[in-house]
Design a protein around this nucleic acid. Structure first.
Ligand SMILES: [Mn+2]
Ligand SMILES: [Mn+2]
Ligand SMILES: [Zn+2]
Ligand SMILES: [Zn+2]
Lengths: 132, 132
DNA sequence: CGCTTGTTGAGAACCGTTGTCAAAGATCGG
DNA sequence: CCGATCTTTGACAACGGTTCTCAACAAGCG
């Protein structure tokens, strides 16, 4: 039952630590391969799964359904502003929305309230390089 | 170029009108087949796509990535409070969040801003029948 | 070291969704 | 009505991200 420390798991965590953006499992797999730290794709998926389970990484769904992973600086509840084009991410604090969400849900008689709040856009850099 | 009125499209819209919960394309396809109003699965997908494109239906991603569709009463932009036990859905207006979202994203230099805001909870009925 | 048992990875399987393309049918001018 | 036009349909194949399979491999332990 004990989780074993392997070269592969270490590599995945280290790669995530160096990346600032949300990345897909496949992108991460390619990144690892590119730096010679080759890890099987299935293993990358399993490592990310485990990390997400342990709340060590945040997961969100791209518009096309692909899962994107990121090791955020903040461990507490927060949200994200993500660039659709390059994945650049800004962690967002939303006290306004937090209050709004629980208030609205309670007003409808709902309990155990959870919310999904994600912002998508095109970052300044990507806008500049595409507008040409 | 003109959109043609067909038996299939009518059937999909009518089925959606009678359903109160978010449903997947496959569920809808099965529902249609069950009532003898048989429509090809690809056609159901295309009809839902077109309806979503025209903002006639709302689309929601389930936890497992499957797309769920619903013909909401309100045609304008809004959000949802969904009971995770029974699927009961309440349409939510969020002027507070709308303002917050665009403000936050703009402050970070992002463009073409979109947002995902969904609330999940347990409705009063479901809480009553499970609390004991 | 040897053993035990969790881990790996190449490839197959899975599954929701989209593409293909010949047949069907909606629309319309005549 | 009729036929020409051109969109739509649907069975099936293809696609793409993710999960499964299972024999080979390697942590961790005494
Ligand atoms: Mn929040
Ligand atoms: Mn909104
Ligand atoms: Zn960008
Ligand atoms: Zn309920």
């Amino acid at each position: 039952m004990a989780a074993r420390m392997t070269r592969q798991r270490t590599a995945v965590v280290e790669a995530l630590d160096e990346l600032a953006d949300f990345r897909s499992a496949q992108q991460l797999h390619e990144t690892l391969r590119a730096r010679g730290e080759s890890v099987g794709l299935a293993t990358v998926y399993r490592a990310l799964q485990a990390l997400a389970e342990a709340s060590e990484v945040d997961v969100l769904r791209a518009e096309d359904g692909e899962s994107l992973y990121r090791r955020c600086a903040r461990r507490e509840h927060h949200h994200h502003l993500v660039c659709r084009a390059c994945g650049r991410t800004v962690e967002i604090d939303g006290p306004t929305v937090e209050a709004w969400a629980s208030k609205v849900a309670a007003a409808q008689g709902f309990d155990d309230i959870e919310h999904t709040v994600e912002l998508w856009g095109t970052c300044a850099d990507c806008r500049a390089s595409s507008a040409r």
